[in-house]
Design a protein around this nucleic acid. Structure first.
Length: 395
DNA sequence: TCTGGGGTCCTAGGACCC
DNA sequence: TCTGGGGTCCTAGGACCC
């Protein structure tokens, strides 16, 4: 049976939630990401009114302030966005048993075989859009295609409040009608490489044989490009990820050089990651550290231990060791990041029983503290050093 | 204009082994 | 003397996405 996919994308999601929740913001340029004067902030989402001034995601906030000084600026309420997202994903669930959530604001719906139940895909999509609007006040854009990749691109073509259907068999023609910038998975670097190879349109790529593309771009990218411009139907999304990681990072308002400030930052990041590890009931043997220097050069180190990370102190110590190994003394630090990689469920058997008894005990105490905080979020127990800092679970 | 935070995946080089 | 070839695993860096 011919496949039918919807790709549903929430329009200017964070900004739209703000405008819905606060009627005074409606119809006004609104920018989520920071307040004017916030150093080193970037635009997370701009409302369509703000986009009219040239403001867009990932733009430095200072630039956005210049372009649109009279906009409403908010830092954002991510707990609220997650809540609305969950509500909308629930609606999707009423239309398809197979919803593949790609991020907080987009999902694929496998609509194959639902025609008898709901009618023609386009009508069903219109109905879904209406239901989301009725129940949340938000608009979504939908792409419909037998190819997930094509559906994904189609949903972005007529935003906001778009509905774009690419008929089965028309995928290739659709892809050939697009400018290169619309190719999902092709960023600025690959755009540049394409240009250097004399490929300026999707048709230019289409004209090349597979072996030529792989010889220029490598096996992987070459094959991807070959399939992409054909709207190939078996380009799949939403496969189970192989390597999960949990990370926390922070860009500082001013570059760090002081060792005590650096350690305090590492402690906070380590505590943040371990708290989430606890909540998600996972463990990890691999700790990674990232340092971004004042000149924006970024380095990283990681180490895999013989036993899993047991508690926030353990994590902190491992991070400090990695930091000492990698840090170029004297350089100003603009960002520090900390992560646990290759995270696995705690129901997996532990690979080694080299558990230090003291470590195990500390892990148990920490678990108990987390459990109390989960039950009563007002309880706050943490290291004196982190008082006044923003630690999850300590509102 | 001066570059967030949270992720995933790919690549290239080195270590190590047979 | 001056050194193969293949496989696998690990690490650092980078591209890309929302």
């Amino acid at each position: 049976m011919e496949k039918v996919y919807f790709h549903v994308d929430l329009d200017a999601f964070f900004a739209s939630v703000e405008q819905h929740d606060t009627p005074a913001y409606r119809g006004k340029p609104l920018i989520v990401g920071g307040l004017p004067g916030d150093r080193r902030a970037v635009v997370s989402t701009a409302s369509y009114e703000a986009r009219a001034y040239g403001v867009h995601s990932a733009m430095p906030l200072s630039r956005a302030v210049q372009l649109c000084p009279h906009a409403v600026f908010v830092r954002g309420n991510y707990a609220r966005y997650r809540e609305v997202s969950a509500q909308i994903m629930d609606i999707f669930g009423a239309y398809s048993p197979d919803v593949i959530q790609m991020s907080i604001d987009e999902a694929f719906l496998d609509m194959t075989g639902t025609e008898r139940l709901f009618g023609a895909p386009r009508d069903t999509a219109a109905q879904l859009k209406q239901q989301v609007r009725d129940e949340t006040g938000l608009t979504v854009s939908v792409g419909i295609s037998a190819s997930m990749y094509v559906a994904k691109i189609a949903s972005g073509l007529h935003k906001p409040d778009g509905l774009t259907e690419v008929p089965a068999g028309g995928e290739e023609q659709f892809m050939l009608s697009l400018p290169l910038e619309k190719l999902w998975g092709v960023g600025t670097k690959t755009q540049e490489r394409l240009k250097n190879a004399g490929l300026r349109t999707t048709a230019d790529i289409h004209n090349k044989q597979l072996p030529l593309l792989t010889s220029i771009f490598g096996q992987n990218t070459g094959t991807f490009l070959y399939n992409a411009v054909r709207g190939n139907k078996d380009m799949k999304f939403g496969e189970e990820a192989k390597n999960h990681s949990i990370s926390s990072e922070e860009t500082f308002d001013f570059d760090l050089t002081d060792r005590y400030a650096i350690d305090t930052a590492l402690m906070k990041l380590a505590a943040n990651v371990l708290y989430r590890m606890h909540r998600e009931k996972v463990r990890s043997y691999t700790v990674a550290l990232k340092i971004r220097y004042e000149d924006f050069t970024t380095v990283s180190v990681q180490a895999t231990g013989s036993s899993p990370v047991t508690n926030a102190d353990d994590m902190f110590e491992r991070c400090k060791a990695l930091f000492s190994k990698k840090y170029t003394a004297g350089k100003g630090i603009r960002l520090l990041g900390v992560a646990c990689e290759n995270v696995e469920s705690r129901s997996e058997p532990v690979q080694q029983s080299l558990f230090d008894f003291g470590e195990e005990k500390r892990a148990k105490v920490e678990e108990a503290v987390y459990a109390m905080q989960d039950k009563n979020p007002r309880i706050s127990i943490r290291k004196a050093r982190l008082f006044g800092k923003d630690i999850p679970g300590s509102s």
